[in-house]
Amino acid sequence: MSELQLSPTLRRILLEAVILCALAAAVGLSLNYQMVLNAFSGKTVARPKLADSPAEESSSETPVQPLLYPEPIELEELDALLAEGALLIDARNAIDYAKSHLQGARSLPLGELDAQLEDFLAEVAKDRPLIAYCNGFGCPDSFDVGIRLLQEGYQQVFVFEGGYPQWRDAGRPLEGEQ
């Protein structure tokens, strides 16, 4: 059996390339260990900032309330919740919603949350499970809307992180002008 013969120089280049990767991994993991740890333990990773959230108010007189976060769910879990009567909440802007949205979704854009919340509270019961979504992973609007709905007293609020792109790419039904 013939062995692959590498010149000493090439061996050194390969070794140094491996060392580079190890060094980058060490730096990256030491700076982001909490994010990676959360992801592998199934905890919520996205921690979007909410400008007027109570957690950001610092007052020595009023105790700071811990900020509640909606639970992120996958597409398969979403199906089970929809079967139980959950309501899909589209946190994208109204134009995108009008063009195309998940079948059965109700529009509640983050930018118009204050204006539309009163109607929403009147229409949707507090014990109904809610699933917020926006433009997929990395889009924080669904989390911000979810946090606000939890603050308003809704008991079961979830975020479908894959959002509109994952639903569309899975061939699920859409509604809208397009």
């Binding site: 700076l31 982001n32 990676v36 992801a39 992973f137 990395g138 994952q166």
Partner: peptide
């Protein structure tokens, strides 16, 4: 912004959920 970058990696729909964050933690530094 490693969380946003993890979202971009996840959009490729190649890796399992948590592995997107591992890639996002290391790749920028490499």
């Amino acid at each position: 912004d490693p969380v946003a970058f993890a979202g971009q990696v996840a959009n490729y729909q190649i890796l399992p959920y948590a592995w997107n964050y591992l890639v996002a933690a290391i790749l920028p530094y490499l």
